[in-house]
Design a protein around this nucleic acid. Structure first.
Length: 453
RNA sequence: GGAGAGGUGGCUGAGCGGUUGAAGGCACCGGUUUCGAAAACCGGCAUUGGGGAAACUCAAUCGGGGGUUCGAAUCCCCCCCUCUCCGCCA
């Protein structure tokens, strides 16, 4: 069984390019590995609470493979017959009988292939719903109650007055407008105005500047609308399509996170080992339907249909991905530290780890106004799960076969919840808000929002 | 939106019904030559799956899907993508 440093091996990269429209997504898990070590997958999925009938799966796989060999044998006969016809025709012989015979052979092969196709589709549909196995080091647990707090930074701010929530503070300062946002777009939207809008812009610029200078990322400005291929690549489609906004007249989706265009940026390519790790950062708005989330933490701008986020993404070598995840997490954490915001780090348990992720740390910032923790970043390694679907490979050395990279990403950071924490943490008795020093140069030297200036 | 041209191996680029899984070139690997390198020359070099200890062998793959045919990269239909020109608009 693999330890934390290695997942199942992936010796069989597929050769085709991006999954084209209409073609079922590539399997997220390696069937060859599944055959070889079913016990590993059995326990990995059990740990996640995923009900998987592995025996049925393997039996189906076995049938498919038998039909495949049956077809190949039959097809080989057809090919032999066809070649004989070509030769005979060339020398002027009568080929009518031979053609009839070949047609029969062809029909037989086709019949077998149709059976294979039906079963293989069944198999594929099953595979699509299997989550990425977690790393062996991930704590086993049922749900968010079993997540482990692995770090905590700073302390809860104290106040000589009753701290307000951002949905009171923001409108009172004239920097957030929920009512008019609803007039424009319905519930789940916000209009930032004046210093609020500028503060958001300052956060974005500052985040990007830190990542591109101190942390060594290359900034990308990417499309916000993408085709189905990239959505399949990172795992949003087909399973989570109901969370996406889709254009009515075009096969285009609004991205729910910059992860989609950024991770898929190199889809279908074979990178050189020397290029790795590839590190990108990008700011984009994120669009999420939040279907089914009505009523859960929907007040204010905690959970909205559109928000800004700076994402950080790595494409890295499999042997480095575990260590790289910690580095990436550190990059996200350093932002919170420089903002002086109290936060904690959770290591998600097997039951709470996202579908495509193998290991996730959540950064949660303290919301003083609501006495709760808010997730501002989810830092995950996807091992080769996304790379397999997006066909993201690298060549370990010249002349060697390409291998899948590992993908890692996290927010660095999500805007609304940072804004919330910032306003609530730095609010003053008079309702004004002190601007953290690192942001002041982005705000023309502004030190305080609201109050007497 | 209108008109046209295309999508072939790591890249480039021929092929347009039959020993074509696919010429040529580049890149890459091995060898000869050289003190060494370059150049030149010789050889090798797609992916996936099945069988085999191996040599090897069988099948599938020329954007995706379907059709015609004994046989399709080549012919027909649908879809996707890219490019060029015109129109429209920032």
């Amino acid at each position: 069984m693999p330890d934390g440093g290695a997942t199942y091996s992936s010796p069989t990269p597929p050769s085709s390019c991006l999954p084209p429209l209409g073609k079922p997504a590539r399997a997220m898990i390696d069937l060859a590995a599944l055959r070889k070590d079913p016990a590993f997958f059995r326990q990995a999925w059990a740990a996640r609470g995923a009900a998987v009938d592995l025996d049925a799966l393997l039996a189906l796989d076995q049938q498919v493979r038998e039909l495949k060999t049956g077809f190949e044998t039959a097809k080989a006969e057809v090919n032999t017959a066809s070649k004989a016809i070509a030769m005979a025709a060339k020398s002027g012989q009568d080929v009518h009988a031979a053609k009839d015979k070949a047609r029969q052979l062809g029909d037989h092969a086709k019949a077998i292939d149709e059976q294979r196709e039906a079963l293989e589709k069944q198999l594929h549909d099953l595979l699509l719903h299997l989550p990425n196995p977690c790393l062996a080091s991930v704590p086993v647990g049922k749900d968010s109650g079993d997540n482990k707090t692995v770090a905590e930074w700073g302390t809860k701010p104290t106040f000589s007055f009753a701290p307000k929530a951002h949905w009171d503070l923001g409108p009172a300062l004239g920097i957030m407008d929920f009512d008019r946002a609803a007039k424009l777009s319905g519930s789940g939207f916000v209009v930032l105005r004046g210093a609020g809008a500028k503060l958001a812009r300052a956060l974005i610029s500052w985040f990007l500047d830190v990542h591109t200078t101190a942390h060594g990322y290359t900034e990308l400005a990417v499309p916000y609308l993408v085709q189905p291929g990239p959505m399949q690549g990172t795992g949003q489609l087909p399973k989570f399509g109901d969370q996406l906004y889709k254009c009515a007249h075009d096969e285009l989706y609004l991205i729910p996170t910059a992860e989609v265009p950024v991770t898929n940026y190199h889809a279908g390519e074979i990178l050189e080992a020397a290029q790795l790790p590839v590190k990108y950062t990008a700011h984009t708005p994120c669009f999420r339907r939040e279907a089914g989330a009505a009523g859960i933490g929907t007040r204010g701008m905690t959970r909205v249909h559109q928000f800004d986020k700076v994402e950080i993404v790595w494409l890295t070598k499999p042997e480095n991905s575990d260590a790289d995840l910690l580095t990436l997490r550190g990059h996200a954490e350093s932002l919170l530290q420089q903002l002086g915001l109290h936060y904690r780090v959770l290591e998600l348990c097997t039951g709470d780890t996202g579908f495509s992720s193998a290991h996730t740390y959540d950064l949660e910032v303290w919301s003083a106004g609501t006495n709760s923790w808010l997730e501002v970043s989810s830092c995950s390694t996807f091992t080769d799960f996304q790379a397999r679907r997006a066909n993201l490979r690298y060549r370990p050395a010249a002349g060697e076969k390409p291998h899948f990279v590992h993908t890692i990403n996290g927010s660095g950071l999500a805007l609304p919840r940072c804004l919330i924490a910032l306003l609530e943490t730095y609010q003053q008795a008079d309702g004004s808000v002190i601007v953290p020093p690192v942001l002041r140069s982005y705000l023309g030297g502004l030190e305080r929002i609201g109050g007497k200036s």
